[in-house]
Nucleic acid binder design. Structure first.
Length: 844
RNA sequence: GCCCUCGUGGUGAAAUUGGUAGACACAAAGGACUUAAAAUCCUUGCCGCUUGCGGAGUGCCAGUUCGAGUCUGGCCGAGGGCACCA
């Protein structure tokens, strides 16, 4: 048998696609468009298995849609600003631009080796000024719309990366990239007013029918809408403070009010700024919420003020006012009213400071003497001990009623609050998009005139200075505009800004006057299918949605609200983990198997312990380099295996056995191909029967349905099944036409999976024009079917029959069947349930 | 703590509207071919008894139904998200 030479065949077709520009796309209004987009990569230098999976899934879809007759846009680009470039450049004494460009060219050639159907003419890179000049222009547009502002604020400061992080980028009190404990620092920062769109971003989720619910839920929780009431509390004391505003979702528990708690950053703290004890307390608070220990313990601490707050519904009741560590300044008003009986956090605080705990809600199955004892009661019930509110049903009725009363008395007002905070976009880094702002000698910010865009990043900067290198780049920082001296903003934009609109740029990658052309956007957008990792469920996907809201805000020319019509989040690629006897991680490449046991290759006296399969990561050394895999097995084998084992949304286990078996399978397909070619030459006079056509037809139905449903693992199963059929049947005499027509259909339908192999086989049949093969419903009708026979719901046998057999005829066959009839002898039949052509259940 | 998702052989998984549980693979064992090995092909989910057949079986316990992996309720377990959000 001839061996399948994947190396030369894959190379041949990749060259062909390149030369013929097979995947280049233009607007064609006679065709329905399909925009297939995978999350673009950061150019770290090498592709990893996650990319292979992500882009293979996208490629299957893009190729399938294109065969179906859609005008498919399937572009690729580079998310090329960001810190790794800066760090790598510092270490290796080169500049981030060179480092990034080298990486891009490496990764591009690796991606090409996967045989992806990408329109490379549309390639973009966010670090190129062709790209970021439009981004600077968008920034200025949003500034004009008052959706960008600057304010001094406490920020999340990453001490290792020496930069500010957005709230979304702080994970368990640590920087998402560096893992360093995040500190609080006061800085002047630029913000996007994402919170203005909270309601719209929330409402938009309902329209995203093709998004996973999981992602929608995560965004919904992140936006965090809550309905409640703002209440003015009068206060007494020797400070010039008359009232304090609080936000609450449970105004109905106001009669249980026993303290008022303020954030240490609340305006009232001004009166304590010289108080030593207070400052000590404040310092203590700034630690909580950032150290892991504090989060785990979660102890509530307070600092008592000289103020007393008056219960607006019960003016005789006056309670102490505290500063407390659990009150956040940037939610609500930085002040909460404490009702210990019905809020666990308030309960803990009250216990610690021995404050009154008054029950005002009783569960329905308790009487009015019910008292909260060991923990707060937050469930539903009836209001008690609440004067004129007694008897109301909590929470729904009682909340609405109380708000009505508070509004009548002009003490409070209905209010909706969101957890979502504005997006801080300033980063104290060099390798990012410069913010097009300058400051005059008074420190006032001014936009850079649009005619002066792009504000280019200076080259040849000294990266080894402490802090932001742009700060010490004086020849860049100081400029004159119309003869007047200004200094530039030296912060650069968060790189998530770059990825918030790149999908628009793919529609008009060469347009120089603006970020995109209206005509292009009108045709291509929205993205029909976006594919990427779940890790971007909030960050990137929410920012992109916001960016469309912001661009379309007060803009009659641009009305797009949601960028991604469909979203698919693929699972991770996992691999077993290995450790040597000393407990060090060992790479799969350094392991040899002897008699089913694993040893260290370099030192075979060392046995290896096999650990659980986990997502591939450098730290656990369980990564597999796609480049080696492609070199040893070919791109088609890699694609076949990465699709085969698990559904695309779930994690997949990479294994050496798996990839080897995919490789063998392609060889088997090749052998089959050779057999079929020689059968075609024989050209028999008559078809033996039409079984071949029928089988092909049902295969086409399966593969089409599975492609539509993203069940790519099942497509591989379909391929295995059709192979098993063909290898057994193919030597039966079939007419040339039957053979070529059906084989052609099969080959076309597998081009999305193993394109190089399929194209090669198709070219041997001299087939150039590829259309998705349709299946014929009529051919799906079988002449023989198996009907399940159940006795009392239990399967007892199968009866082969022609379709459409009547219940009585079937029953007659059963009574003549020795095996089945033995269950019926001397039994009274109470009932028969017949599901036509499927099942007969006899109840005795 | 709150929210979401998921529990099917040794493993990854299939199973239209409730209607043959385990398709398709991986691993392991046995067998065929071979002087031998590799490669290839075939068989095997579990428990019984010799083949053949019988029994149990989709995390556990109930329920609905002629019939439940699928629907309902409760419990247990795993994974993910959020975390002082008032």
């Amino acid at each position: 048998m001839e061996r399948y030479n994947f190396k030369s065949i894959e190379e041949k077709w990749q060259k062909f696609w390149d030369k013929e520009k097979t995947f280049a796309t233009k607007i064609d209004k006679n065709k329905k468009k399909f925009y297939c987009l995978e999350m673009f990569p950061y150019p770290s230098g090498k592709i990893h298995m996650g990319h292979v999976r992500n882009y293979t899934i996208g490629d299957v879809l893009a190729r399938y849609k294109s065969l179906k007759g859609f005008n498919v846009l399937h572009p690729m680009g580079w998310d090329s600003f960001g810190m790794p470039a800066e760090n790598a450049a510092k270490q290796n004494n080169l500049d981030p631009k060179t480092w990034t460009e080298t990486n891009i060219s490496n990764m591009k050639s690796q991606l090409k080796k996967l045989g992806l159907s990408i329109d490379w003419d549309r390639e973009i890179s966010t670090c190129s000024d062709d790209y970021y000049k439009h981004q600077q222009n968008f920034f200025l547009e949003l500034l004009e719309k008052k959706l960008v502002y600057r304010k001094e604020n406490y920020v999340n400061w990453d001490p290792v990366d020496e930069t500010v992080l957005a709230n979304e980028q702080v994970i368990n009190g640590k920087g998402w990239r560096s893992g360093a404990l995040v500190e609080r620092k006061k800085l002047s920062q630029w913000f996007f007013s994402i919170s203005k769109f909270s309601q719209k971003l929330l409402d938009g989720l309902d329209k995203l029918g093709n998004w996973p619910n999981k992602v929608k839920t995560m965004q919904k929780n992140w936006i965090g809408k809550s309905f409640g009431c703002e209440i003015d509390f009068k206060v007494e004391g020797n400070l010039p403070v008359k009232k304090i505003k609080c936000f609450t979702t449970r105004p109905d528990t106001l009669f249980g009010f026993s303290f008022l708690a303020l954030s240490v950053d609340h305006a009232v703290s001004e009166f304590y700024k010289d108080n030593k004890e207070f400052n000590k307390f404040k310092k203590q608070c700034s630690k909580t919420g950032t150290t892991e220990e504090a989060i785990a313990v979660g102890e509530k601490i307070g600092f008592k003020t000289d103020l007393l707050a008056i219960n607006p519904l019960d003016p005789k009741s006056k309670v102490p006012v505290y500063f407390a560590n659990f009150v956040l300044m940037d939610y609500g008003f930085g002040a909460v009213f404490g009702c210990p009986a019905h809020d666990q956090r308030d309960f803990d605080f009250a216990k610690k400071y021995k404050l009154k705990i008054k029950t005002v809600v009783r569960p329905k199955n308790e009487n009015d003497n019910f008292e909260v004892d060991k923990e707060a009661y937050a469930g539903p019930g009836i209001l008690v001990n609440s004067d004129f509110l007694n008897g109301l049903e909590a929470p729904d009725q009682s909340i609405l009623e109380t708000i009505k009363i508070l509004e009548q008395k002009k003490i409070g007002q209905k209010k909706i609050n969101f957890r979502l905070k504005d997006w801080g976009i300033s980063r104290q880094r060099y390798w990012g998009c410069p913010i097009p702002i300058v400051y005059d000698d008074k420190g006032e910010a001014h936009p850079v005139p649009k005619s002066m865009l792009p504000v280019k990043l200076p080259e040849n900067v000294n990266l080894k200075v402490k802090g932001n290198p742009l700060d010490s780049q004086l020849d860049w920082k100081e400029i004159k505009i119309n003869g007047k001296k200004f200094t530039r903003e030296t912060d650069t934009l968060d790189t998530f800004v770059c990825s918030s609109w790149y999908y628009l740029r793919f529609c008009s990658p060469k347009e120089s006057s603006y970020g995109f052309k209206k005509e292009d956007i009108d045709y291509w957008m929205p993205v029909d299918q976006y594919i990427g990792g779940i890790e971007h469920a909030i960050l990137h996907l929410l920012y992109s949605r916001f960016f469309m809201q912001a661009l379309s805000h007060n803009n009659s020319e641009f009305s797009l609200k949601e960028p991604f019509d469909g979203l698919f989040t693929q699972g991770m690629v996992c691999h077993e983990t290995y450790k040597d006897p000393d407990g060090n991680w060992v790479s799969p490449e350094d392991i040899e198997s002897i008699d089913g046991k694993k040893y260290l290759k370099q030192d075979k006296s060392k046995p290896i312990t096999v650990g659980s399969s986990e997502s591939m990561s450098k730290s656990k050394k369980n990564t597999i380099d796609p480049e080696n895999i492609i070199a040893n097995y070919g791109a088609d084998s890699a694609r076949l295996f990465i699709l085969s084992d698990s559904p695309p949304e779930k994690d997949v286990q990479w294994s050496e056995e798996g990839i080897a078996s995919s490789y063998k399978f392609i060889q088997k397909l090749w052998n089959l191909n050779l057999k079929i070619l020689s059968e075609i030459k024989k050209d028999h006079e008559k078809d033996l029967d039409n079984e071949f056509e029928k089988r092909t037809n049902s295969f086409l139905k399966d593969i089409t349905n599975n492609l539509e449903e993203f069940s790519y693992n099942k497509i591989i199963a379909n391929l295995h099944e059709i192979y098993s059929f063909l290898i057994k049947q193919i030597e039966k005499p079939y007419k040339k036409l039957t053979l070529t027509e059906n084989y052609k259909k099969i080959l076309i339908s597998i081009t999305p999976i193993i394109p190089h192999f399929a194209y090669e086989c198709l070219s041997q049949l001299n087939i150039k024009k590829l259309d998705w093969p349709t299946y014929d419903e009529k051919l799906l009708i079988k002449d023989k079917i198996n009907i399940v026979i159940q006795i009392n719901g239990k399967k007892r046998g199968l009866i082969e029959s022609k379709p459409g057999i009547s219940e009585d005829n079937l029953f007659e066959i059963i009574t003549k069947d020795e095996k089945l009839n033995k269950y019926l002898i001397d039994k009274k039949i109470n009932k028969r349930i017949y599901i036509k052509d499927k099942l007969l259940n006899i109840i005795i």
